[in-house]
């Protein structure tokens, strides 16, 4: 029982305090790839902890198949003892309900998010192939449009789209910086990470961590794409391109006014490049390892205890 409570406690604490921990001192902005990984792992860890807590309640009511049951007879007794929760079958079925429910609910949201995205994208591409012209020299599709626009369409027929408005305003070096940024999105399959974060956030909007990840992951991926583009392009050129593209936008087209990612990105590109220290990276890596193993360890703890008490010998 205490193990179940510990797991649920872990999920609640991480779910609520997670955003504050992960945003601490803006470390993720200095290592966006690691940041995305930590956010995603933390989100999955919260969901996994709840599923495992449910499964732990199920263990005592599991009817093992005959052969296995004999082998594990003594072991099961011990396992039952260690996983025992007072009103037996009810708790077991409740656990099954929670674990199965959370799993199905999550999988359903992931599936619908990915399908909705694919449908929307395909519809977009269908019209796009009609109205856009392929510019082989840029490896991009160009649409006749006055607003400066640049975006990419991930997927099977991935492509970068530029508006004539953007091409008119941007000098060549800025165009290639923009293209590098978009190609970083495409090659890194950033759309998959975004979809996953969006699906988790949609499935459990009441969990602060998952809700925060929904905006944090796309933001960090923008920073990551900037960093990748900056490997082969001048940071100031990229910043200038950002300002040009954003500045030429008419008010009606500008979304979510003020204080958004754009501001941060321009500032970040103009400041000297400041990647996270090795210690910082190591901490991030260790955090990921902990986020993966901690729920599993907590769930397996009673079984390990049983094993250590030597009452229970698993036929290996």
């Amino acid at each position: 029982m205490t193990a179940v409570a510990t797991l649920l406690g872990y999920a609640v604490l991480l779910g609520i305090l997670g955003p504050r921990l992960l945003r601490a001192r803006g470390w993720a902005d200095r290592a966006p790839r690691l940041g995305v990984l930590v956010w995603q792992t933390a989100g999955a860890s919260v969901i996994a902890a709840v599923v495992l807590a449910g499964l732990m309640l199920v263990v005592p009511i599991v009817q093992a198949p005959h052969g296995l049951a004999d082998l594990l007879a003594a072991c099961r007794l011990m396992l039952r003892l260690h996983y025992e929760v007072p009103p037996q079958p009810i708790a077991g079925y409740a656990g099954l309900f929670v674990a199965g429910g959370v799993l199905l609910w999550t999988a359903g949201h992931v599936l619908t998010t990915f399908i909705a995205t694919a449908v929307q994208r395909r519809r977009h591409v269908r019209t796009l192939t009609m109205v856009a012209r392929r510019r082989g020299d840029l490896d991009a599709l160009v649409v006749e449009y006055d607003e400066p626009l640049a975006y990419c369409l991930p997927g099977r027929r991935r492509c970068v789209v530029l508006s004539t408005g953007a091409l008119e305003r941007l000098p060549d070096d800025q165009v290639s910086a923009v293209l590098a940024h978009e190609h970083a999105h495409l090659e890194g399959r950033h759309d998959l990470a975004i979809n996953l974060a969006v699906a988790f956030g949609r499935a459990f909007p009441a969990v602060p961590l998952l809700r925060a990840a929904r905006s944090e992951v796309p933001r960090l991926l923008e920073l990551l794409a900037d960093d990748v583009a900056a490997r082969n392009h001048d940071r100031v050129t990229l910043a200038a391109a950002l300002v040009t593209v954003a500045g030429g936008r008419t008010p009606a087209m500008a979304m979510g006014a003020g204080g958004g990612t754009a501001l941060l990105r321009v500032r970040r590109l103009l400041a000297p490049h400041d990647p996270l220290s090795r210690t910082g990276r190591l901490t991030g890596g260790v955090s990921i390892a902990l986020l993966v193993t901690l729920p599993l360890a907590l769930a397996a703890n009673p079984a390990i205890t049983a094993l250590l008490e030597r009452h229970c010998h698993f036929p290996v």
């Binding site: 909705a116 995205t117 994208r121 975006y151 991930p154 929904r214 990612t261 754009a262």
Partner: peptide, 12 residues
Amino acid sequence: QAAALVHFLSDL
């Protein structure tokens, strides 16, 4: 965001 038409820039 769901469409993941990842934009170069959204707001400034």
